[in-house]
Design a protein around this nucleic acid. Structure first.
Lengths: 224, 224
DNA sequence: TGTTTAGGTGAACAAGTGTCCATTGTCAAG
DNA sequence: CTTGACAATGGACACTTGTTCACCTAAACA
């Protein structure tokens, strides 16, 4: 890579719209598929008539040090992540939730949603779900409220939710009146299940209709 | 893939030594490089004279559903992870630590260490460090002890350590007498730094020699 | 005006890459 | 003994893949 002139320094890391789109596609392709895209796959995605359009963009992304590639080798990308937002620096425009509602469209149409939202949502999920076998279905939610403090789950924590059916005693993300809430799932024998807060100032919740469980909480991640 | 006969079912998932070696190499290659190896790279690594040896093993790994590959496409692997050990089911032979010592050789020669140790160590690190820019250098340690309970860091929690210099107030993994401990780093003006527990029953630690900080704790991960 | 950046088309080439065929040897089980 | 699994060598082929060259347009700036 050339020595950067002052002018180049000024533009470094300022991606054009197209460059950002292509970067986002690369990242999400890897996220969805577990391997990197080829040049022609990128070409196809953006309806370019020539691979050279892709090359141009990739060269620019490399020049801006956003990505690295191994010359001459297929599907060999590396993303140079900027210093990941500190976990206690949730970006301002991140989706805010009320006592853990579903993160908008994520559960319903995640790949599309992420593509629209850019890096932020995906990055969060990666942190917490990378090690799970169903990693493309698990999701992270941010805790709002203090109903689970007795379980050492505090406001601002991220909770990893794995979509599956709960057992008695599991901490679950459940839908109540269209809102998701984080509670402990209680199921005794043949009685209908209910939700119990881990804070004595909160009532137990008995669903009028059938309880809809989004998933089971598997881990809490807290930034320091 | 063929329908499995009963005999094949019986051998499913039982990898031979060589198959396991190759699987481990693939996993670690991706971990180190961020992209998958090519057949010839695998060939070279194991000093095979023919790519066909690699193919044989890969076919076996596919047959055993340990990996998936996209036919005809370069460097397109997927690892079918077994249900990841629940974070509260740390495998029995995992390295146990005493109030967070360095996990053996990890800090000093991690890639080699992992190769020797197999999947267990690497998996742990992946869970916690996936989102960090220096992900190949960050590491996770398991908390042993209760010296940091006032900071809501409990025994059994995993702490993500990012190697970097600390600021006053950071929670750090530091070397004291050859043991790593997790404490809050206190540095006032020009006075030498010391370590403070977040539990009143533990003393403050003043290093006799220079304080060696392994890194700064970035996050706590607790299984539910 | 000229230059640079950004963003492409078109085309071709070389190398990387996966795949397959033929073959051999060892070992274990039936 | 035969068969199957495992593990390789040797070799060649077809396709994928990255890369380069030539060229074009548009916009911004000095």
């Amino acid at each position: 890579m050339d020595t950067c002139s002052p002018k180049q320094v000024n533009t470094m890391k300022d991606l054009t719209t197209r460059q950002q789109e292509i970067l986002t596609f690369i990242e999400h392709y890897e996220w969805r598929n577990g391997y990197w895209p080829s040049i022609r796959e990128i070409q196809e995605r953006f309806n370019f008539k020539s691979t050279n359009a892709v090359m141009g963009h990739l060269r620019a992304l490399e020049r801006k040090e956003v990505i690295e590639r191994i010359p001459g080798q297929a599907r060999t990308f590396r993303i140079n992540r900027p210093d990941a937002p500190e976990m206690n620096e949730i970006p301002e425009d991140a989706t805010e939730v009320v006592d853990i509602p579903v993160m908008g469209d994520i559960a319903a149409g995640y790949p599309d949603r992420v593509e629209a939202a850019g890096e932020i949502g995906r990055l969060q999920v990666d942190i917490a779900s990378a090690g799970y076998s169903s990693r493309r279905r698990s999701f992270a939610l941010q805790v709002r409220g203090d109903s689970m403090v007795d379980a050492e789950i505090y406001e601002g924590d991220m909770v990893v939710i794995e979509p599956r059916d709960p057992h008695d005693g599991d901490i679950v993300a459940a839908l109540i009146d269209g809102e998701t809430t984080l509670k402990r799932y209680m199921k005794k024998g043949n009685e209908p299940p209910y939700l119990k807060a881990e804070n004595k100032f909160y009532p137990e919740l008995y669903p009028i209709n059938e309880l809809t469980v989004q998933g089971v909480a598997k881990a809490v991640v807290r930034s320091l």
